[in-house]
């Protein structure tokens, strides 16, 4: 025996009360009646929401920097890191006079995340070298069309007046981890060459 939970099956003859069904039915009905007054297991979703962890990985946000310019430089690392291949982007060069809009010389003219493909693993956030994409504690609302789940920049980039707080998950420990050069994915090209030279 692997556990001590197994029970011997008893195949005893039913008593008269059991054969008459009614006592069993009556006790069953008492059980269902008592459930009327129990706490409901379901909630009225759009009005009520279940509490979620503060570090919940929900809908993405594309952050702006302190001056209000988009941080994303369309390097494509998030798209490469994405295991579900949910991220698509088109890069474009920043023109003169757009410095207040985009932080780097290159920016994403189109940036789409397919929320039906996305598995909310957070690898895009980890891959991002510019601290541009973060997952937030917002739920992706349901719609009737598949096309509506492909979120473009209009839904992903935060507005200047209403910045989205991502500091809950970006604790000091996380930031240190991201900076730590011991980890493979944080090494720069120079670091990598240095380790190779040292090894030989």
């Amino acid at each position: 025996m692997l556990t001590d939970r197994s029970k011997q099956v008893v195949r005893k003859e039913m008593t008269w009360a059991e054969k008459a069904y009614l006592p069993a039915i009556f006790s069953g009905m008492m059980i269902t009646f008592s459930h009327i007054f129990k706490k409901k297991a379901t909630i009225k979703y759009p009005e009520q929401k279940r509490p979620i962890a503060p570090i919940y990985r929900g809908q993405h946000v594309l952050k702006r920097d302190e001056a209000g310019a988009e941080r994303c430089t369309a390097c494509g690392l998030c798209a490469v890191a994405c295991p579900a291949e949910a991220i698509t982007m088109v890069a474009e060069e920043r023109k003169k006079g757009e410095e207040n809009l985009y932080r780097e010389e290159k920016y994403a003219s189109m940036y789409e995340i397919n929320m039906l493909r996305c598995i909310f693993c957070g690898l895009c956030e980890e891959a991002c070298p510019k601290e541009a994409i973060f997952l937030t504690d917002r739920l992706v609302p349901s719609t009737f069309e598949r096309a509506d789940f492909i979120y473009g920049k209009s839904k992903l980039v935060e507005t200047i007046d209403n910045p989205i707080d991502v500091s809950v998950r970006q604790t000091q420990k996380v930031l240190e981890f991201k900076e730590d050069k011991k980890h493979k994915h944080n090494r720069t090209f120079l670091d990598k060459i240095n380790t190779i030279i040292q090894r030989h």
């Binding site: 269902t32 459930h35 129990k38 297991a41 379901t42 009225k44």
Partner: peptide, 10 residues
């Protein structure tokens, strides 16, 4: 719905 701990049509 009530007997199954749900809310029901609302």
């Amino acid at each position: 719905a009530l007997m199954q701990d749900r809310v029901g049509p609302n």
